[in-house]
Design a binder for these strands. Structure first.
Length: 893
RNA sequence: GGUCGAUUAGCUCAGUGGUAGAGCGCUUGCUUCACACGCAAGAUGUCACUGGUUCAAAUCCAGUAUCGACCACCA
């Protein structure tokens, strides 16, 4: 016996996985060659935050990408899976600021821009790469030689170039606009970074006195009394009869005291509150619009950090907006102007990162009019880009059709600084200018570009760009330097598949499509696969604060990377959320072990690897059956890949190996595998031919295990890798002889006989004998296998066998099987068993009869459906007849 | 308010018009010379509800309920 028999009984993945990953790296298996003759296939990774760590969402997402990449290699394509990270402006800066405050008690302003940025770079150096180490542990076949970062110098050149181009095209402008302001991060946010959350608020009803009619009041409802100091008008709907008489008159704002006009505006909903709306143009988007329409003054009463800016009212000045809300309400009450307060649930916009309510605020920002909007819309609508699941295409289209200019400036330090320079002598005026456009550049007042002009003194804009303003260039800026049509770009762009979450359709996917068209004249990817959100068993999102998010590294330690990959892929439905259960990963681990043990069985038999199949004439039904199923598996996998049905791929692979290959085939040919029998060589050949193909089929899901087993089984020449071996094209069986069907028949009979044994509590007994009567001819050749499958001493053919009363008998398609127990069995028990079966069969007969007697069924149904039904009915009828005979034999004395 | 999903076994989910499925869990029996991370047998369903289309509906259509996601300037 060889050393292989000393293989441990259970597969131990950890050492194997580490060893194979290193081997792949050492042999440059993941490195893409842009000069290759093969067809190019590329995926760009959705760049994780540079200092991020791996969570289950990443595992799902990246496993899918790895499966696609590995499959594409097997299909003979030149694969480039390009990895990289995102600088994640707000997220990273916030982390560093928090650390700075905790450790040194300083703010970023205490350090100054340059020193602070140095800190952030240090932080980045310290924490970057963690997530990639984790992806390597998972087995991801990224081309690590091409790792990119959105703030790499080359990449930054792209960002600045794109800004300049868009500015020169008149698509970027600067202006004072109402934006979403985060009072904690002290920066503007895009609409997409604002999360609406339902909030238990209060609706305050108050009254403003009518100036020309003392004692008469206008009633107003608001959720934000803290902004009333910025009120410049009260608006009512012109059609609202209750208030029409006040339009054009004035009411008294109680504090600071002022007379403000009552105006008419269609926006006001007469049904809501009192039908009168206080107008605070500085602190509400809708009010701002109304202010513009009515040329109202803008009074800003808030500091950027959300505290009140109202020196004339020291009781409020400097206090937080929410404190002032209560104080203002109290003051109204004191003044007798507060009518009532109602509980009220409304939606409040929160800052995605800082998780505080955003403040609508007028500020000077840079905006982009999106380019290539129509092309981007059409690409998905016309199917040039395929969305999976398709329904996200509608979400995408809706966004593009209602697209708003993108606020791209951020009042942060970490990021790409806006490449705009102001002439030093005019800097102050330019910074405050109502608008800045192309005209200012043409007039020589500003310069746009990464470097200041050599002549004269220039100062740079202080703001940085939204992180997504760099991410949207990802598919091509990672592949080429500015101004260069790189080999990579020629070979791999457009990329094939993008795998990402539907939550970033607007942030990222849509914008990449626009950038692709605008800057490369070409869409950036052809397929977008949207992964599902992973939830816990209670349906909650995974989150750090809930503590319901298992660490993927722990899971890999416990179950192996392959186990985690397989478990997750099997449960990832197309387009719905996944409820994560560790038991599913355990299942993946168990599956790896099952395969390992099937191979262990083969290794224990020993013998050479069989390179060719014996002629079909030498194959038994079990061989034909499993070969045919292996071919069918390959076809089904191809189809499932075409449809991106990863969960189905998992199920197909699982089902074939466990149910078909192990439970049926291996059990049927076990004698051969113990060696030294006539059939051994044939069976080994079938095993080897199928298993090599199966390793390839499974490889994208379980790359480490399959490489390891292919090596141990000596299926591949020394030094070659399973991951690089192309999928075979020809099926294992060119033609399938009819005898393959005998195998399934034997398995079915075995099931019935095992069932019978169990009913008489003989499941564990190996010494039982069966007699078969009226069998079909070919079965006699298969009785040895049948005995093995059933766990019987022997099964003999004896048409003359006299069945004594009470002897259990089962009817099968292959004959009448008797389990002679010679009086051990209670006649009544056997009658009961038969009666149960008769009842079952009777109801089947009735069901199919009913169907066949329906003339409309016979007329309208497809002929093959009717034929099947007829056959079914006939066989049930025959069975019923036989069962009744058996039963009456018991009954008669 | 609008849009889009989901609802199938105790749990997680497959199932695109023709006999309701898998894994886990549960019950029973097995330490059988690949595997107890295993083997064998078994029980378990108003396919959310109400209508409609059809010879035939878990499947197609309409509505209802519940849950969820996204969009939206009712303060």
């Amino acid at each position: 016996m060889s050393a292989e028999t000393d293989l441990p009984k259970a597969y131990e993945p950890n050492e194997v996985e580490e060893r194979w990953y290193q081997a792949w790296l050492d042999q440059d298996c993941f490195t893409a060659n842009p000069d290759s003759d093969k067809e190019g296939y590329a995926i760009v990774i959705p760049p994780p935050n540079v200092t991020g760590i791996l969570h289950l969402g990443h595992v799902l997402n990246n496993t899918i990408q790895d499966v696609l990449a590995r499959r594409a290699r097997q299909e003979g394509k030149e694969v480039m899976w390009l990895p990289g990270t995102d600088h994640a402006g707000i997220a990273t800066q916030t982390k560093v600021e928090r650390e700075l405050r905790a450790e040194e008690g300083k703010t970023r302003r205490d350090l100054g821009r340059e020193a602070f940025l140095e800190k952030v770079w240090e932080w980045k150096e310290k924490h970057e790469g963690i997530i990639f180490k984790q992806l390597k542990r998972l087995g991801c076949s990224c081309d690590w030689s091409r790792e990119r970062f959105t703030m790499d110098e080359d990449y930054s050149q792209w960002v600045s170039h794109v800004f300049s181009e868009l500015f020169k095209q008149g698509l970027i402008y600067r202006g004072k606009r109402m934006v979403n302001w985060c009072p904690v991060s002290l920066t503007a946010l895009s609409d997409e970074e604002v999360i609406m959350k339902p909030q238990n608020s209060k609706l305050y009803y108050m009254k403003y006195e009518v100036v020309d009619s003392p004692g008469e009041f206008l009633e107003i409802a608001t959720t934000r009394p803290e902004t009333l100091m910025g009120d410049v008008a009260v608006a009512v709907n012109p059609k609202d009869e209750r208030w029409g008489q006040y339009i054009g008159r004035k009411v008294r704002r109680p504090f600071p005291a002022a007379e403000i006009p009552v105006i008419a505006d269609d926006h006001v909903d007469p049904e809501f509150g009192t039908g009168a709306l206080k107008i605070t143009p500085a602190h509400d988007k809708a009010d701002f619009e109304i202010g513009l329409r009515n040329e109202l003054e803008i009074i800003d009463v808030l500091h950027p950090d959300g505290t009140l800016n109202l020196p004339e009212m020291p009781e409020f000045d400097g206090l937080d907006r929410f404190v002032v809300r209560r104080k203002a309400a109290a003051k109204l009450e004191e003044l007798g102007l507060l009518l009532k307060v109602e509980e009220y649930e409304n939606n409040v916009g929160y800052s995605e990162r800082a998780d505080v309510p955003v403040e609508p605020r007028i500020s000077m920002q840079w905006f982009l009019k999106y380019p290539a909007v129509e092309e981007a819309r059409a690409a998905v609508a016309d199917g040039e880009i395929t969305y999976r699941p398709e329904r996200w295409a509608k979400t995408y289209a809706h966004w593009l059709e209602n697209i708003q200019d993108w606020c791209i400036s951020r009042q942060l330090w970490w990021g790409h600084r806006i490449p705009v320079w102001y002439r030093a002598d005019q800097a102050h005026a330019l910074r405050e200018a109502e608008s800045l456009t192309l005209a200012n550049m043409e007039g020589g007042q500003i310069h746009v570009g990464e470097e200041a002009p050599s002549e004269g003194e220039w100062v740079r804009d202080d703001d940085v760009l939204d992180t997504w303003f760099s991410s949207w260039l990802w598919p091509f800026a990672t592949m080429s330097n500015l101004g260069e049509k790189s080999a990579e770009l020629k070979k791999f762009y457009p990329t094939a598949d993008l795998v990402t979450g539907p939550d970033i359709i607007f942030f990222w996917v849509a914008r990449m499509v626009m950038a692709g068209f605008h800057f490369q004249d070409e869409l950036p990817f052809r397929n977008v696969f949207f992964t599902s959100i992973i939830r816990d068993l209670k349906g909650r999102k995974m989150s750090k604060s809930l503590g319901n998010s298992p660490d993927p590294l722990d899971l890999m330690e416990k179950y192996g990377a392959d186990g985690l990959r397989f478990g997750l892929m099997r449960i990832a439905p197309v387009g719905a959320d996944v409820r994560f259960d560790e038991a599913q990963v355990e299942e993946g681990r168990n599956f790896a072990n099952k395969l390992y043990n099937a191979c262990r069985l083969r290794l224990m038999t020993g013998g050479e690897v069989m390179q060719a199949l014996p002629p079909v004439s030498e194959l038994r039904p079990y061989h034909l059956d499993i070969l045919q199923k292996a071919d069918r598996l390959a076809e089904n996998l191809t189809q499932a890949y075409a449809d991106y049905r990863f969960n189905e791929l998992g199920s197909l692979l699982y089902e074939f190996l466990w149910s078909e290959f192990c439970d049926k085939f291996l059990e049927a040919v076990k004698i051969d595998l113990r060696g030294g029998v006539a059939g051994t060589a044939t069976t080994l050949a079938v095993f080897d031919r199928i298993m090599l193909r199966y390793f390839q089929a499974l490889h994208p899901f379980m790359p480490h295990l399959t490489e390891e087993l292919a090596l141990r089984m000596k299926y591949l020449p020394e030094g070659s890798f399973l991951m690089n071996s192309p999928l075979p094209e020809a099926p294992l069986l060119a033609e399938v002889p009819a005898a393959h069907a005998h195998a399934e028949a034997v398995y079915a009979v075995a099931g019935r006989l095992r069932n019978l044994k169990a009913e008489y509590h003989l499941a564990a007994r190996k010494d039982v004998r069966f007699v078969v009567k009226n069998t079909i001819p070919w079965l006699t050749d298969e009785l040895d296998v049948l005995s093995l499958l059933v766990g019987a001493e022997e099964i003999v053919v004896d048409d003359e066998f006299a069945v004594t009363k009470g002897t259990p008998t089962v009817l099968t398609d292959a004959g009448e099987f008797v389990l002679p127990l010679d009086g051990l069995i209670d006649v009544e028990a056997e009658k009961k068993r038969l009666q149960k079966e008769i009842t079952k069969v009777e109801s089947e007969v009735e069901k199919s009869l009913k169907k066949l007697q329906n003339p409309k069924f016979v007329e309208n149904a497809k002929p093959e459906v009717v034929a099947v039904e007829k056959e079914r009915h006939a066989s049930w009828l025959e069975k019923l007849k036989q069962l009744r005979e058996l039963f009456s034999a018991l009954d008669s004395d």
